[in-house]
Structures are given as C-alpha cells and as structure tokens.
Design a binder for these strands. Structure first.
Length: 882
RNA sequence: GCCGGGGUGGCGGAACUGGUAGACGCAGUGGCCUUAGGAGCCACCGUCCUCGUGACGUGCAGGUUCGAGUCCUGUCCCCGGUACCA
C-alpha cells in the first residue's frame, strides 16, 4: 500500500514546471517532431474522460520521441470562441470573456493534473486580441487575393427569439430553445472561395498518411464529377417567342438521346417565365409547398416522387423532339445548374418519376431491361444515332465533342463542395477587419489598426429588430470614419469558430511573435505537423478548412509545405456503461408507484418506447453498475427486484444516462498514471471502448507492483531497495531484451495496449529467479516513462539519478539475446496438433522432420501410413500430411 | 439506400506477412499469508464428453489451402457517416 500517486504526481508536475523540462526551442542539430492534439473548446462542463484519451496518446509519443533524440514540439491551447459562452451570456449577463477565462482555467488545471508534457510557454487562446489580430490579418490576405466575397445567403432567422440560429440549433424547423418557428431569410454574408482549391484538396490527399476512410470522406464531400453542360431550347410556343434556353448538368452525356423530359428545381429562375397560363396555378402551388416543406419532410418521402408540368416543352437537341419541362423537388437548386435532363431508362430517380407520371422511358444503353428498372451501369449505346455501338466511356466523349462542335454545350466539372459561408450573426467571434462605404464599397482596415476588438456589451440579448446581429446595435462601434474622415460602417458579423482553429498549429510555432503570425524560420523548422490526433467528428470540416487555408498560405509563400498534417489518427470514443429498464411513469409523476419492465417487454416507436403488450407509454431508466445487483448467473438485476433483468447498454457518455466519468474523480482515487495507462489499455486507440470502473484496478495493481519492485517493508517500515548490481541471470537479461524490443515496436505503431501488457509481463516475471538486476530495473523504468511518467521519474530518482529522465536515451535491446538456442515447434498431423518438439534453432528440415515423426502421438495418429508430405514452418510448426 | 468500420470467453481485448486461437487485464473459483483483508502472493478459469497430449469452437453457409479469426463467394446483425448530387 505504499504507492501513493498523489504525492508522487504533484511532486513531479511541479518539478517539470519549475525546470521548464518540456520547453521546445529550435535546434537545427536535432530532427524535429511536431505532435499535436486537436485543441479543445473549453466548455463549462470541464474535461470528460474522452479528452485525455487522445492527449495521452500524443503525450506518450512526445515523451517517447524525446527519448529517441527528437526535438519535440508539443503544445496546447484553447479554441475559445463559441456558442455556449454566448448563450450563457444571454441567459445570465456574464460576459463571455469571463466565462471563457474560468473555463480555460478549469480545463488547464485538469489537463495539467494528468502530467502531459506540453510546452505551456506556447499556450494560445483564440480569443486573445494578440491571436485575433492575426486571424484578422489572414482574412485581409484572403480578401486581397479575391478569396473572400460577399453574397446573399439564406440564414435561419427566428423572429420569436430575434436571432439567427446555427443549423444545429434548429430542430424540425423549430428553434432548439423554446421550439419557435424558424424561417429562411436571405442576408448578405461573407463567403470564402474554397471551391477554387477543390481539385488540389482532392489531389494532395494522396501524399498524406491518413486513414483511408477519412480521405474518402473528404473526396466525397468535395464530390468532383465530370460531365457536360447541355443547353436545351425551350419551344417558342411555350416561351412566347423569346429565345429561352435551359442549361442542365449531366454526368451521362452519352444518354442524351434518351432524355424524354426535363425537370427544374422549384426554385429555378426560369420557372415563372416558362410556365403556361393553364398550368400556372398548379405550378405556383407546388413551388410554394416545396418552399414550406422542411428538409425533414423532403427527406421523409424521398422514395416517392412529386412534381408538376410547367406546360412548357423543350427540344431534345439530338433528335429535335419536344419533351415536357417539369418542376420537382427531387432536383436541387444548389447543385449543378438546378435543372436536369431526365433519362428514365438509365437513372433510378428519373425512372421512378417517369413511372409515377407515366412519362416515356427509352432504352439508349443496352444491357438492362428498362421496363423493369433503370439500367444505370455502363453498356453499349443504342437508339442513339451517331453513338450507336459505342461503349459508355467512348460514347461520353463523342457526345461532348458533338455538343461542343454544335455549340450546344461543353464538357465540364461540377463539385458538391460549395463556397464556405464565413460569417455568423454573433457577438463572440472575431470581427471582420473591414468597413462598408455608403456606396456599397468594402474596404479593409489597415494592418496597423489590427486587432479590431469587440465592443463591450452590457446585455447580450439579441436586438430582436430585423434579423440583425448583436453588434449592429452598438452604434458607437459600428459607425466610424475611414482615414479620409468619411463616415463608414463596420461589419456587424463575426467569423465562425473555424477561423481560429484553421491556423492555430502555425501560431504554436511562434506564439509571441508581434511582427508576423509566425516566423519563416520557425515554420521551416517545425512544419509539417508529424502527428495529429483528434476525434473523427472533425473528419471533414475542420480538416478541410485548415487544408484550404494552408494551401492559400502556400501560394502566398507563407508556408513551405502544401499540407499541414502529415499523419492523422482518429481516436475512438470512450463510452459509458449503464443498465436499463423501463417503468410506466413517463411523466415522472412522484405520487404514483410505477411498475417496472425489462427491456425485452418494450418496443421503440416514433413516439417513444411503449409496452409490446398493450402499447402503454413507458420511460427508460438507467442504473449504474455500482447500484445494480448481480444474481447467481452474474446477470444484472434491479436492486429492489431480483426478478427484473437489466439490459447492459454501452453508449456515448451523457448527463441524462448518468454514465459520465469525471477525470478528477479517477485521478483522486487512482492517480494520473493509472488514468493514463487505463485509457491506453482498454483497446486500440482508434477504437471506441467502454470505460469500466473495475478495469482500472488492474492497472493500479500493476503500478503498485512496479513500485514494489523497488521497495520493501510496509507502512512506516517501507524503504527503497536498490536493485542488485549487474545484468542478472540469462532469463532476466532475455526478458529485459524482449520487453525493450516489444515495447519499442508497439510504441512506433502506437499500439499502446499491447505495450502495456508487455510491461505487465516484465513486472510479473522479472523477479522469478531472484532480485531485480540494476540493468533491468533502469531499462524498465525508462520503458515505463512515456506512459506512466510520474512513477517513472520517482523510481529513476530513487535509482540515484539527479536529473529528469525525460531526455534519457531510449533503451536498445541486445539483439543476441533475442535469438534462442532451441525453439519449440508444434507438431501437427493433418493440421491438428499432436505434440511438441524442442529442436536446435538452426536444425535443418530433415532433422526436424525426423524429430516430428518420432513423436509417439504422431505415429498413433498416422496409424502406420507413410506421410505424403511434411511441411516445416521455421520457428513455428511441422505439419505431417497423410 | 449508399459509403465506411466491425462481429473472437461472462467483460475489455491479443493473435506481425495464412502457421499452437484466447496474450494481458477485469470479473469469477480455490489455496497461501494474516487478528482481519476490500492488501499481497500462487493456481485455475471457451464449450462438451467417455476427462484424453479427446471432440467442437472466432456471427452464419459455402469455398481455396497441408493448414483459415486472417484469403475468396454469399448471407445476417451491430456501430458511425450521409441523405434524391443528375
């Protein structure tokens, strides 16, 4: 019971801080290693056990690489702008700066209590004016290079709350807070031209050491598709003699002969002008209905197609036949040209639409049966005039050639990716460093006036007048003058939270720089980030936005690498465990005594859980492991009713489930080293796994055992015992070498769980034949150091070293000890194990074969037959076939 | 639906390129130590039986192979993402 993590851990945390052990400086004589965590938003709830999982992994790598002679940059900071602090301000009047400051202090305390080796001198906070200054400086650069522009874009305006809401604050077309109606309103907004980088954002993924699924998600999000734009002339009878053309985008120009009708998005600008008088009422009703329908509604009946004929027809340019022009909400206004040519024979959606409205279906690609289903795959062109007989790829290019020569269209590339909506109607964000002139001109404010800071507010409630951001109310801030003394207005929008997180990894290189966002020297030395660890929820947006900015910086000569993050690892989620049952008191009525039901008596419905038996509404209840009773079969049952089985559920930690684990509690009880080790031990980093309150016991026992390798006696009698001099017995030397080799390989591959199990085996077996020899003891302490740094430092100092082990050289295994003189081989007959033999490591196949055939069981199994074949797998086994 | 990940003991998980399935840990069982043990140490711990250097066993059904958790075909289930992208 002598191992006392709390004393050891605070001692070493103070030591590291006092000695600035982890301060990183540029040192050209050493290779660098930049290991980065996705910095957190410091929420009011504090750290949960999920955060430290990634942080522990990066810390182990940072400490390991230091011992391997790398100059390691390992910083931490705060992504501190964000909605929760502003919402809290609206509710309580507390300035977001105060809330943010408190939350940062709490996060920092918690993170530091885990003993991570961050260089705290580089701590940054995206809300700090010295940081905001450079975020605004970057916006100036983007604007100067034509990558920032203003456009009218719809926002979620909630008249009741008098504020603009983020998509995530809108649920089912109503505000998350209060359930008030939300309408889409156009508003002038800042946009960033990320689409200009679409191709490079796809291409450069190839060079990155990222998980394939993440790369794929990015490629799909950008959604490059090659095809053609084709112009269809609207028949003059329906366009009142005017020359009206509808341009469509298609990825299958080869199917143009099979276009039997066209569809416009209800929002398409030509809808009103081409609609004929007798169809006008129906079209207008449909347009209005689509506009009213929420995203959710549209999604709900994605299977069934709706639409209305506009009364107009257009001419299919290939054969000149008239085809009807419809409107339907399965065509999206925002993708391609907002209009399609419908080829029902070869597109599933068009096929369904044609079936619904009895439109003609023509086969133009052989290989399917278009009367049964759309044939969407490739095939030979048919019924297609000059394309007949061509395979799909050839038909595509021939059609594009024809369209271009006839002036009817051209080959083109379309992306799903849209430009990035970069303004928010919020207070707690970076103000835009621009002024608006009366004549509508926009001017950047001079660099010397940065940072442009937020005005102080007394009241953070939205103005409620018009759909204006809170800053619009602050007349004395909004109304200002330019250098020539003309009256101008500041921009009332602020930047999104992404702005700060798009470039923070560059500021870490040189956080105190007043002259530039970062110095060329620091950038050249430290970039790119060698290892970036964070949650998969940022797979697309954060990583895509930062890559975009980084490419802009690259083009401007501000950085030397095309990509910011060389290797990316997504950590899994730490899940919570709880035990579920139901009761028939869905309204939490305290006066009734509810009946409890097991999970298998309940089914989920759209309205919530109900009893299978009679459909009564019930409500789920959760119990924690410590509160449940285990019956004799070790099944969890309700503590007050042993006949009620409980369902074990493992899911995301959340307050409502009561399954949240607070790191402070874990550290108090078992120490930071146990917490670190446990998070690494429960499974591979990339995988999600449940936190188990018992499981950490095993880790704690292991650390105690490690401590006891160096101590004897109990309580007051306890004292340090120096290890025996020398290298110990052959077995001890071999075990030590094997541990070094195994742990090293595991750490290189970030397989922390198996590295820990190897250390456990060492601690269990090293004293099997005598006291721990000094060489093994020191090696073990060094191997333990990246993962359990506090205990390792303590033991290292007890072993008589005056300095921190943070920069000690990583142990090297004595290779000669890793090769055994004899090996034990499994002997199989027809693939079934029949015995084992011990042979010299360098025995030849003939000798091995003879030894294997001599095994009594093998002979018995062979039953006198001669073996047909003998397979010898060196170092593994012998398989006798016959 | 589509895309991605995954199904191995009571539980978390090991098993590198096909080569002894279940390392390590939790929980459990037995023993030792002890005034006591919620400490520590040792042993056992997939299923079945005829208790053996026995049979079966990695979601399910097939296949390839001397040999399959690992490769192939089909199929079921779970988790995550996404939502008619022409």
């Amino acid at each position: 019971m002598a191992y006392d993590p709390s004393a050891i851990e605070s001692k070493w945390q103070e030591f590291w801080q006092e000695h600035e052990t982890f301060r990183a400086e540029i040192d050209a004589s050493k290779p660098k290693y930049y290991v980065l965590d996705m910095f957190p938003y410091p929420s009011g709830d504090g750290l949960h056990v999920g955060h430290p999982e990634g942080y522990t992994a990066t810390d182990i790598m940072a400490r390991y690489k230091r011992m391997r002679g790398f100059n390691v940059l390992h910083p931490m900071g705060w992504d501190a702008f964000g909605l929760p602090a502003e919402q809290y301000a609206i509710k309580t009047g507390t300035h977001p700066r105060i809330t943010t400051g408190n939350n940062i202090a709490n996060f920092k305390r918690q993170i530091q209590s885990l003993g991570f080796s961050y260089d705290w001198s580089r701590e940054i906070d995206t809300t700090d004016p010295n940081y905001v200054k450079w975020t605004q400086w970057i916006f100036r650069k983007l604007h100067e290079h034509g990558l920032a522009y203003e456009a009218e874009v719809a926002v979620n305006w909630c008249p009741e709350l008098g504020t603009v809401l983020a998509n995530e604050e809108v649920i089912d077309g109503k505000s998350e807070v209060g359930g008030h109606p939300v309408v889409r309103m156009p508003m002038k907004q800042w946009m960033l031209k990320i689409t200009a980088y679409a191709d490079r954002l796809i291409e450069d993924l190839d060079e990155l050491d990222w998980p394939e699924p993440i790369k794929k998600m990015q490629r799909d999000w950008i959604g490059r598709s090659e095809g053609a734009n084709v112009r269809f002339g609207v028949d003059s009878s329906s366009s009142r003699g005017e020359d009206v053309e509808i341009e469509v985008f298609t990825t299958r120009p080869d199917t143009l002969f099979g276009a039997t009708y066209m569809v416009l998005a209800p929002e398409h600008e030509l809808v009103a002008s081409i609609t004929t008088d007798d169809q006008r009422a129906a079209v207008e009703e449909y347009v209005e209905r689509s506009a009213r329908r929420s995203e959710r509604d549209r999604m709900a009946d994605a299977g069934s197609k709706t639409g209305v004929w506009t009364g107009a027809t257009a001419s299919n340019p290939t054969h000149g036949e008239s085809i009807p022009v419809w409107i339907a909400d399965y065509v999206l206004a925002g993708y391609g040209t907002g209009a399609i040519m419908a080829v029902p024979g070869h597109d599933e959606r068009d096929w369904e639409f044609a079936k619904t409205f009895d439109l003609p279906i023509v086969e133009v690609v052989a290989g399917g049966d278009v009367t049964e289903a759309a044939h969407t795959g490739p095939g030979t062109a048919t019924n297609s005039g000059f394309l007949d007989g061509l395979e799909t790829p050839a038909a595509k290019s021939k059609m594009i050639e024809w369209l271009e020569s006839e002036g009817l269209g051209q080959g083109t590339v379309t992306y799903k990716l849209r430009d990035w909506l970069f303004s928010r109607q919020r207070y707690w964000g970076e103000p835009f460093p621009v002024v608006h002139h009366e004549d509508g001109r926009v001017e950047l404010i001079p660099e010397s006036e940065l940072p442009l800071t937020l005005p102080e507010l007394e009241d953070f409630k939205p103005s409620g007048e018009g759909y204006e951001p809170p800053l619009a109310r602050v007349k004395e801030w909004i109304e200002t003058t330019d250098a020539e003394g003309r009256a101008v207005l500041r921009d009332a929008n602020t930047m999104p939270q992404w702005a700060g997180s798009c470039w923070y990894f560059l500021r870490f290189l040189d956080p105190m720089n007043d002259e530039a966002p970062w110095s060329e020297e620091a950038e050249k030395y430290w970039m790119p980030v060698d290892l970036y660890v964070g949650g998969a929820e940022h797979a697309v947006l954060h990583l895509l936005y930062s890559r975009f900015w980084h490419k802009v910086f690259y083009d401007l000569g501000l950085v030397s690498t095309k990509e910011p993050f060389q290797k990316l690892v997504n950590q899994g989620m730490i899940l919570g465990e709880s035990f579920r049952f139901y009761d028939d008191n869905p309204n939490d009525d305290a006066s009734t005594s509810p009946t409890r039901f097991p999970s298998d008596a309940v089914k989920e419905t759209a309205e919530g859980p109900v009893l299978k038996e009679d459909g009564r509404a019930v409500k789920a209840r959760w119990l924690q492991l410590k509160d449940v009773t285990l019956d004799e079969d070790r099944n969890a049952v309700h503590p007050e009713d042993a006949s009620l089985p409980l369902e074990r559920v493992v899911e995301k930690m959340s307050k409502s489930r009561g399954n949240v684990i607070n790191p402070d509690d874990v550290i108090r009880e078992h120490g930071a080293d146990s917490m670190r080790l446990y998070e690494m031990f429960i499974g591979p980093l990339e995988k999600s796994a449940p936190w188990s309150t018992e499981g950490i016991q095993g880790i704690y026992r292991f650390l105690q055992r490690a401590y006891r390798l160096f101590h004897e006696g109990e309580d007051e009698e306890e004292r340090f015992v120096a290890p025996a001099d020398g290298a110990g017995t052959d077995d001890q030397r071999r075990l030590t070498a094997e541990t070094v080799s195994g742990v090293t390989e595991d750490l290189e591959n970030m397989r922390f769980n198996t590295a820990i199990s190897k250390l456990m085996i060492f601690a269990r077996d090293i004293t099997k034949d005598g006291a721990v020899p000094r060489e093994s003891a020191e090696t073990f302490v060094l191997l333990l150091a990246p993962m359990a740094p506090h205990l390792a430092e303590e033991l290292w100092s007890l072993l008589g070293h005056g300095e921190s082990l943070a920069y000690e050289a990583w142990p090297v295994a004595d290779e000669s000890l890793l090769v055994a003189d004899t090996v034990s081989l499994v002997v199989q007959h027809n693939g079934k194990k029949r015995g084992e033999i011990e042979v010299a490591a360098d025995a030849d196949d003939a000798a091995i074969e003879a030894a294997a055939l001599a095994v009594e069981n093998v002979q018995k199994s062979l039953g006198g037959r001669d073996p047909k074949k003998v397979i010898v797998v060196p170092g593994r086994l012998v398989n006798i076939v016959g």
